[in-house]
Nucleic acid binder design. Structure first.
Length: 323
DNA sequence: ATGTTAATAT
DNA sequence: CATATTAACA
């Protein structure tokens, strides 16, 4: 009893940063990836909401879709394939989650979606480079999750629907339906979000607080004042029994986070990308991109997918082991 | 055990 | 320094 396996004993030179490679190799087989989102929802509820077998978008698909939505500009050089560059980039794993923003914004322009030749086998989500499958790598330390505006939008949306009262990490996480998102992630963000609301409260209504590019960009729902909004509504809950944990399932398409491998240049004048010009800060992932310090672009617009770091990488489709 | 808050890390 | 993870606590 009580057997702890220490893997660090063997090496000793392996740092935590190298975890990135770990999940890269720890890709669960497709068989493991099963549609759990619907499985958790009772058939009755599902049919009531007309929730059909939602198809999961491949990482690359989602990624491309998000980028496409935001960047309707000219397609500058778009080759973000630094998958094999992992060997050198070991600053800090950064994960970025994207989602298909199709709420509140009429995005119909389906620009050309070429490139991404490595995305043919989206199921693996891992272009050629990786390749080693490690089913044992599941609870590994995943890189920092980057809350992209889209993801935050979903977060705020759910919180607004639940009300500040029922806005608890678990419920939020469940309702967000973002694969890979953990309770801890939501809790952490929720904390920051609450602080943001509180801080803004005691300040002038018009607060050009340049801080919090993310928060300030997302409209705060008014439901944050009332208590308990969607709860004992006329849902299908009046069945007598049935403890559905889903207060009010939102027809949100399941989205899986897209991890982004980034180099944490903890320099100073970080961030900075011509949003209104070429959001594609990706160079040709082949050259040894040095640290380009773009000291320009007025940091005004606060959109973009939060790709303030760079490289794109895949995320281990964490199996629906539930929490 | 889940939600919060503080501390710590990146 | 802001943001996210981890730990401690209620």
């Amino acid at each position: 009893m009580g057997e702890e396996v220490k893997m660090s004993d063997y090496e000793g030179g392996v740092e935590d940063e190298e975890r990135v490679l770990e999940w890269e190799a720890g890709l669960p087989s497709l068989d493991d990836l099963t549609p759990l989102s619907q499985a958790l929802i009772p058939p009755e509820l599902a049919s009531a909401f007309s929730i059909s077998p939602v198809q999961y978008r491949t990482l690359l698909d989602v990624n491309q879709a998000s980028k496409d939505t935001l960047s309707s500009l000219r397609g500058v050089a778009q080759s973000s394939n630094n998958f094999k560059s992992l060997g050198e980039s070991h600053e800090s794993g950064v994960v970025e989650a994207d989602e298909n923003d199709r709420d509140g914004s009429g995005s119909d322009s389906r620009k050309s979606r070429k490139i991404m030749e490595c995305a043919e086998e989206a199921d693996s989500a891992f272009p050629g480079d990786n390749s080693a499958e490690d089913p044992s790598a599941r609870a590994l330390k995943r890189p920092r999750l980057v809350w992209t505006p889209q993801l935050h939008k979903r977060f705020v949306d759910v919180v607004g629907h639940l009300g500040i009262k029922n806005a608890v990490p678990k419920t939020i996480m469940q309702l967000m339906n973002v694969e890979g998102l953990t309770r801890e992630n939501v809790a952490s963000h929720l904390q920051k979000y609450r602080l943001y609301l509180k801080r803004m409260q005691g300040l002038s209504p018009e607060g050009p607080s340049a801080s919090d590019q993310l928060f300030s960009s997302t409209p705060v729902p008014q439901s944050l004042h009332e208590s308990g909004a969607a709860s004992a509504q006329s849902n299908g809950n009046s069945h007598g029994n049935g403890h559905f944990q889903v207060p009010m399932p939102i027809p949100y398409p399941p989205v899986m986070p897209m991890p982004v491998l980034g180099m944490t240049h903890h320099g100073h004048g970080h961030m900075g990308m011509p949003v209104g010009a070429a959001p594609n800060g990706y160079h040709h992932g082949f050259e040894s991109h040095h640290h380009h310090h773009h000291y320009n672009m007025l940091q005004q617009q606060r959109d973009w997918s939060g790709n303030k770091y760079g490289s794109v990488v895949t995320y281990p489709h964490v199996a629906p082991s539930d929490k």
